[in-house]
Write a protein that binds this DNA or RNA. Structure first.
Lengths: 228, 228
DNA sequence: ACCTGAACACCGTTCAAGT
DNA sequence: ACCTGAACACCGTTCAAGT
């Protein structure tokens, strides 16, 4: 009924890498966000806590509250950094291609921290980068000849598809990461119970290993209906 | 930069409703799942913990471990119950309509516990209902004349779009729920910073209040490319 | 001004012990 | 066979106190 259950609960190991010294008064939003991202990179989303953050910076955990009102507020800023990514929004002049590229950017950036993607996507959007991406994409859709109303609908469809795809990839990746942390757990590859589900069985060979190409296929399908 | 931040952290109130008596030896998976669902219904996903579950059933929290190996395992079973929903899979003979109806079912069922949707969608899929839905939808797509390969691609696109849409609705709803639990927090309606983002500003009037219709628009767009 | 430390009210999970 | 209770190793957050 349930999957073999390789639990994400794994060891809650505090990140045990060389902590960077933090002379008095050096704490800042930037330093905190960098350290938070490091903790996530090393130990995954489960390893991140206000206490782990304090420990990493050799500072009392509660010192963080000078700079972020809550853990969730910090998480939201982290989210927006991931949504922004490190590449500029594409603008080659080919609206179709740019739109596609922007969504691929978003996917790649969120999947850079797969254990974090699920955490981040659960939070309500609100960051600057999120809205800038929306504005950019809407502009491209207008450029393809869509009305504001059509552009809005198309963008939401493309965005929700992308978020769902990323979420789906991220949760599988995150589970795999958790498995590898428990070395003895079974490999339990993605293996739907096709027994007695014939149409599912027929689909299994076409589940693509290349999930980036799979993502692109879906974009194709959705963008196929768009003018321009 | 970040939204006004009405935190989901709210009071971690243990569900304080009339607990049902639990004579010795009555504990079962079913009783536990019912109680868990009740806790979620009353207090949201944050209120659910192994300790709250024990308290509700007037049982030591650790007694739950006789029936579920971990909290995550229980969560996965809960997830599959929500994914199954309480309606049978539609089969009117109109494949297009049935496919659409099935995805609407999934959306409605997940949104019945919006605070739970995000939690559930973060977990890797693996329940029976999840795969039965896939099998059913793939069969409908085959019936519309799609090849196994086309059906697989189309189903994944539709599913990921649906999950993304539900996630997006759920996180907004969950934030609203959390706001209402802190009666003094500002209302902070969904309000993108359209200032200096002209294309976003042009889209705002077309963000539909009726999110079920919005969901359907996206299904239209995607299914518009499909044969049959 | 900025950080510390103790404290509060919680977690999930394990395991020896009881009935 | 089934449940309890103590214990372990954690949480986020508040607030008075220190420097």
């Amino acid at each position: 009924m349930t999957a073999p259950d390789e639990d994400e609960d794994a060891p809650r190991s505090g990140a045990s890498t060389p902590p960077q010294r933090t002379p008095r008064g050096t704490l800042s939003r930037e330093v905190l966000l960098d350290a938070a991202m490091e903790i996530v990179r090393i130990g995954g989303a489960d390893a991140f806590s206000m206490r782990a953050l304090g420990a990493r910076l050799e500072v009392d955990p509660t010192a963080v509250y000078r700079h972020f009102r809550t853990k969730n507020e910090l998480l939201d800023v982290l989210a927006d950094i991931l949504i922004a990514g490190d590449e500029p929004l594409p603008s080659t002049g080919d609206a179709r291609a740019d739109l596609r590229a922007s969504l691929h950017q978003l996917r790649r950036s969120l999947l850079r921290h797969p254990t974090m993607a699920g955490v981040i996507l659960r939070r309500p959007p609100g960051g600057r980068a999120y809205w800038e991406r929306a504005n950019h994409a809407l502009g491209l859709l207008r450029g393809m000849g869509l009305s504001p109303e059509q552009a809005t609908s198309a963008y939401q469809t493309l965005l929700f598809y992308s978020l769902g795809h990323v979420l789906s990839e991220a949760r599988t990746l995150a589970a795999a990461v958790a498995r590898d942390r428990r070395p003895s757990a079974p490999t339990a590859t993605f293996n739907p119970p096709a027994h007695q589900l014939p149409d599912l069985a027929a689909a299994v060979p076409f589940l693509r290993a290349d999930t980036a190409a799979q993502f692109d296929d879906g974009l194709d399908l959705i963008m196929g209906s768009l003018p321009g």
